[in-house]
Design a protein around this nucleic acid. Sequence first.
DNA 1: AATAATTTTTAGATTAATCTAAATTTTTTT
DNA 2: AAAAAAATTTAGATTAATCTAAAAATTATT
Lengths: 220, 220
Amino acid sequence: MQNSFTEENYLKIIHALSGREGLEVSTNALAESTSTRAASVTDMLRKLAEKGLIHYKKYQGVRLTEAGEKVAINVIRKHRLWEVFLVEKLGFGWDEVHDIAEELEHIPSDHLVERLDAFLGHPRFDPHGDPIPDAKGNLTEPDYLVLTDVQIGEKVRMMGVLDHAPSFLQHLDRAGITLGSVIEIREINEYDKSASVQINENHTLFISLEVSKNLLVQRR
Amino acid sequence: MQNSFTEENYLKIIHALSGREGLEVSTNALAESTSTRAASVTDMLRKLAEKGLIHYKKYQGVRLTEAGEKVAINVIRKHRLWEVFLVEKLGFGWDEVHDIAEELEHIPSDHLVERLDAFLGHPRFDPHGDPIPDAKGNLTEPDYLVLTDVQIGEKVRMMGVLDHAPSFLQHLDRAGITLGSVIEIREINEYDKSASVQINENHTLFISLEVSKNLLVQRR
DNA sequence: AATAATTTTTAGATTAATCTAAATTTTTTT
DNA sequence: AAAAAAATTTAGATTAATCTAAAAATTATT
Ligand SMILES: [Mn+2]
Ligand SMILES: [Mn+2]
Ligand SMILES: [Mn+2]
Ligand SMILES: [Mn+2]
């Protein structure tokens, strides 16, 4: 039997919340993320357990089964490939594509996904720097660091974002920070913990702690 | 309020069944086309009438309102644009795209449709020769004729199909008949009403009456 | 260990889209 | 114009996904 949009969304969210260690996810956390009530979550968990997609024991939280993991990763693969399509082929901004991809990710055909992947040249990362699972379902999260963990004087490369909100992405656009930008931390300002950074050996500006916390970077 | 997939499908089917004269569509015809029971159709018609998308009086059949027509045509526009994308960009065959487009046609963003249209170069026809409505909702059905109405000795150009079934389209592929092919009727065979036709001034073959009835052509 | 607070589940409704069976209306045939 | 046939609608259920309110289980605090 096929999984509904709703079921796919639950699986994707369970995947996200359980992190790479595959920790148990609580009913309330799911209610929060799905914008529903805990009672509704409980009903859905019963159904997903019935279908063999999650491990669920009452009051114990949930984890994905192998089967559930496979479905979740396939949805993520589709989401990220469609985001690449929207940015690379249709010319959308990285701040505009998430909601559309949220719909496209549920279009079923495997054949479609594989052809889309080929058309896009088998991209490894989506427009936000998130890794795209391969056709076999392998998803390897690169271990980037958060900009707040970088020392003064270090130069790093911007590789991704933790917050995908359009407002955050637009803020980065205005600051001239994009995937691949070289960021050098010049100074941490005592007053508000903001950082003075230089972008691409070029222009210098302040970025707030809030921003630094959401930037993923790599040492070079 | 937004229309559901189901509502959009009903509107699209009412549009198709009422033809260019906008004739009344019967409950049973809709039940047939939607693969549901008449009772279910009645329920849906009440709802669509409620939303102002159809004109409906009990026992009298339905027609689309202006608003309903607009929604239907937009769904058709999206369906046909996605079909072009699947064939032209992803390399699918014309026999493979209908079912996928049936899903993609319900993805909501107007912004997406307009960018897709531009990316495809504002195509006027889909891979089956069906006209694509423009952004303003203008849909002009070219008046092609059916191959059965063509006289012996005439040369016509193949412009579209009435049957979109994969098996029919594959049959045309095997016969070497594609959009744009020149077809000359050489002879109508008394025995089974099949036609002897020459394709592209090139190869000659029999095509059954069943096939001729489903080919749309244009005099040159 | 008892009590309080928090989390989770159950019970009982609701809405959308569907169904079957029965009733009603319209159309066709005598 | 009756009677018969066909088409359509209504009545009453069902399933998926949701809700609120109440009950039960778990966790934290005295
Ligand atoms: Mn996204
Ligand atoms: Mn992304
Ligand atoms: Mn189609
Ligand atoms: Mn088509």
